[in-house]
């Protein structure tokens, strides 16, 4: 594969991932489902990429491509078997605490405790991130107003609508105003209005100089908001590039199908 970027020379990389590899041991049930003989599933297979300061980078891939697994490694929830990644210069393997303080991870997998109110959860996570009280109140006002959470600030999260829950989740994941934001499937399960609120917010974060890495299987989302895209198939980077340049002649969907056919055709 061509070197699309130079990892060492570009100092403005907020995220650098090098040769990430993750293999899962499958349970007996999973083994049958995956028709695996070895009982091993390589979800991510030597993935390298980088995200530059102030850009939105999209990881695009079909179901099971290894997107979520990649993001979880970057968020230090799981450890790569091989390779490493740096967030703001902190290795996710060697200094996971510091890496975590620089990133925000948004995913439907991670939920605030629904037993509490948005206000309580915001304060709770602010405390865990060591945010000062003044900063906390400023950010809370900002985010709660931005998402219209204010009037629900003292309502149990369990009693909120799905869209509002999602907004609360986002607000709470950003209590520490991270430089680097990882977002798994940002618009999954949201109606068009909420989805638009979320994508607008991502663009706004970008305006403020934040770096965003998102994963999705929705081509239009990538075309709409991403600066660069990495297409993952079977845990490997199949194509990487500037979204505008890639879609000069064909739209992203067609680019992807050609690529997919070539890969799968070549394999069998």
């Amino acid at each position: 594969m061509d070197e699309v970027f130079d990892l060492e020379e570009n100092a403005e990389n907020v995220l650098v991932a090098r040769d990430l590899k993750k293999t899962f041991k499958l349970s007996r049930k999973q083994k049958k489902l995956e028709k695996s003989v070895t009982g091993l599933k390589t979800a991510v297979d030597g993935l390298s990429f980088a995200a530059r300061r102030g850009e939105i980078y999209g990881l695009l891939g079909p179901n099971g491509a290894g997107k979520t697994t990649t993001l979880r490694m970057l968020a230090t929830l799981i450890k790569p078997d091989e390779g490493d990644a740096e967030v703001n210069g902190y290795s996710v393997l060697k200094e996971p605490d510091k890496a975590r303080s620089k990133l925000g991870f948004l995913t439907s997998e991670l939920k605030p405790d629904e037993f509490f109110t948005p206000n309580y959860m915001f304060d709770f996570f602010s405390a865990l991130h060591g945010v000062s009280e003044a900063d906390r109140e400023k950010r809370k006002l900002d985010l709660f107003t931005r998402f219209g959470i204010g009037e629900f600030a003292e309502t149990k999260i369990a009693d909120l609508s799905t869209g509002m829950k999602q907004k609360v989740s986002i607000a709470i994941s950003l209590v520490h105003d991270p430089e680097f934001i990882i977002f798994d499937e940002p618009t999954n399960g949201l109606d068009v209005l909420t989805a638009k609120a979320v994508t607008d917010f991502l663009l706004e974060l970008k305006q403020r100089g934040k770096t965003i890495l998102l994963s999705t299987h929705i081509f239009s989302l990538v075309e709409k908001i991403c600066d660069r895209v990495g297409v993952i198939i079977d845990g490997k980077m199949s194509l990487e590039g500037n979204v505008k340049e890639l879609t000069k002649e064909k739209n992203l969907e067609e680019v992807f199908f050609d690529l997919y056919a070539a890969r799968k055709g070549g394999k069998e």
Binding site: R100, L110, P112, D113, S173
Partner: peptide, 11 residues
């Protein structure tokens, strides 16, 4: 409930 991992991504 998936609330545990939220704590694990804090420092």
């Amino acid at each position: 409930r998936g609330t545990f991992a939220t704590m694990l991504v804090t420092p």
